[in-house]
Structures are given as structure tokens and as C-alpha cells.
Write a protein that binds this DNA or RNA. Structure first.
Length: 275
DNA sequence: CTTTAACCCTGGAGGC
DNA sequence: TGCCTCCAGGGTTAAA
């Protein structure tokens, strides 16, 4: 499941190759994604020059002079570089063709999205999908104070508040459990009950968890941008609690618990993570 | 306003 | 071997 580190690694993989290059063709092989891929996107993009490859939360933003292509990898998506002559595989839904490079969007479950935001509609940050997103967790704006302020008065469990995306972006189901374990916080705790100090610890834990994943991703970059790796080869996760139900906690040997919050699995150590 | 739940989809796992 | 059921996940949307 691509979370922020995987998306950022993908961005770093495609940016040096796409930026300032002319996109000879953009091909849509399967328009049925999260939302239909606009039928005129090939015409919109063919022959245009990529100006930059950015990221906001888990959205990839490929910017052109006349607008921005918004890409989301959903939960099973990957963007990989492929040799020019390699046959497409099942679930390769879209294709970017440059003179000497080619990229394929592979997404078996089609939870991903490819959208277009024309420049005349204003800054892409005002797109409905991006407008209400929270702060970037790896930016200087992401602090314990910010978390504390955003959590104030919220009854929602802290785990779900982290996942909601309106406070902080890019923290998915895996890293939410991992960061809460690292910070020693019970995922069921109402967000508004967290002290300023614990919010500071949590912000730090989130940053460390994501940065650590990002570092390990750097070495597997080639899985995203060359033809060698299988599509969807995500980072090897060195999880402390995620999918470890019943196994002994690495800190105290207490069996890790699995609960469901908002239809999603949460893993935590009932002893290390306090109320 | 906040919070909850359904939904989109496919592949893999487990039961029989 | 095959068929059926269940589950995973991000994030939008509708409903409570």
C-alpha cells in the first residue's frame, strides 16, 4: 500500500526523467479508475512539456504550462519505468511516452486516480481533492503544537484522527499504528485528551517513522523506475506492531493486539501504549 | 459542525 | 481441483 514514503520515492524516481522533457504521448488503456480518466487527456497532454513533478500528501502532481495532472496510486497502484519495447501487463492502465523513456501506471484494484486540473482553474492546491488536506508531516509546519491545536475538542480516536488527512497527510494505516507504538500512545484515546507533551512525542514519532521508511525506500528506488522489479514492489516493512497480532511486543513481550477502528485494523501493544 | 459507515475493486487466503 | 466467502486498503461521499 503506497503511503507517503512510497509516493515520495516514486516522485523522486520520475522527476529527473520527466522534468523539462516533452511528453510524446499519454495513453489510457483502462479509463475506469476511482473516477473515469478524462477521455480527452491524451489530446490534452500529447506534445506538452513536463515542468515539474511534485507531491501533496499521497497525490503526485505532474505540472505542465497549461495545467496539472493529478495522480493517486490508491492502495494497489505503482508507477514504474519500463523498456520501450516491453509488452504491457495486465492492469497497466496508463502510459507516459517520452523519446527515450516510458512509464506505466499499474493498479489491479483501480482505487487510484488520474485527473486533470487546467491552469485557468487556479492553483492546483485549490482542487477539491487537495484544498482541505492537512499539513505535510515532513515539513517544518508539522509540530506537536500543531497536532495539539488540531486535536483540541475532538472525540475521535487519535488513530482515526491521524488517518483522516485533514490534520496531517500521508499517514496511512500501517504507519499510523507504527507511529503510535513508537510514541507509546493508545490508539483508542480520544484525540482531544492528548497532552501537549504527548502530541510532541507523537509528531516526532510520525516524522521518524516516515523518514525511516523513506530512507529504506531510497535503496529500492530502482523497483519503481526501472524495468527490473515487479510492479508494486513496496518497501520491506520492518513493522513493530503492524500485522503482528498475537506476537510478543519487541519491548515488553506482551502479545500485540488487533482491533478494528473505523473499519480498519489497528495493531498495538496493550502494555507499552498507555491511555 | 463532527462522526460514522458504505462503497469502489481485485487478488490472495482459507474453508469445504 | 474448484468454488465460495472473506478480507485488505485510501479516501470520497452520503447519511446520521
Amino acid at each position: 500500500m503506497p503511503e507517503l514514503p512510497e509516493v515520495e520515492t516514486t516522485r523522486r524516481g520520475i522527476a529527473p526523467i520527466m522534468t523539462d522533457r516533452r511528453l510524446d504521448a499519454f495513453l489510457v488503456h483502462e479509463p475506469r479508475m476511482r473516477w473515469p480518466v478524462p477521455s480527452d487527456m491524451s489530446a490534452t497532454l500529447g506534445g506538452r512539456v513536463v515542468r515539474s513533478c511534485k507531491r501533496r500528501g499521497k497525490y503526485l502532481l505532474i505540472e505542465f504550462d497549461h495545467g496539472t495532472q493529478i495522480i493517486h496510486l490508491g492502495m494497489s497502484g505503482s508507477l514504474r519505468r519500463a523498456p520501450l519495447d516491453e509488452p504491457r501487463r495486465k492492469h497497466d492502465h496508463a502510459e507516459w511516452l517520452f523519446a527515450d523513456a516510458r512509464f506505466l501506471l499499474h493498479d489491479p484494484r483501480r482505487f487510484g486516480a488520474i485527473l486533470w486540473h487546467p491552469a485557468e482553474a487556479g492553483p492546483v492546491s485549490e482542487h477539491p481533492l487537495l484544498a482541505k488536506l492537512g499539513v505535510e508531516p515532513l515539513s517544518d509546519d508539522f509540530t506537536g503544537e500543531l497536532l495539539h491545536g488540531a486535536f483540541a475538542g475532538r472525540q475521535m480516536a487519535v488513530k482515526q484522527a491521524l488517518l483522516a488527512g485533514n490534520i496531517v497527510v500521508g499517514v496511512g494505516n500501517i504507519y499510523a499504528s507504527e507511529a503510535l507504538f513508537k510514541a507509546g500512545i493508545d490508539p483508542r484515546l480520544p484525540a482531544g485528551r492528548l497532552s501537549g507533551r504527548r502530541c510532541m512525542l507523537l509528531a516526532q514519532a510520525i516524522r521518524e517513522t516516515l523518514e525511516q521508511a523513506l530512507e529504506s525506500g531510497g535503496s529500492t528506488l530502482r523497483d519503481y523506475v526501472t524495468a527490473s522489479g515487479e510492479p508494486g514492489a513496496y518497501f520491506t516493512l520492518h513493522a513493530a506492531v503492524y500485522e503482528k497480532a498475537g506476537q510478543p511486543c519487541i519491548r515488553c513481550d506482551t502479545p500485540i493486539r488487533r482491533i478494528v477502528q473505523g473499519q480498519r485494523a489497528t495493531y498495538f501493544c496493550p502494555r507499552c501504549q498507555k491511555r
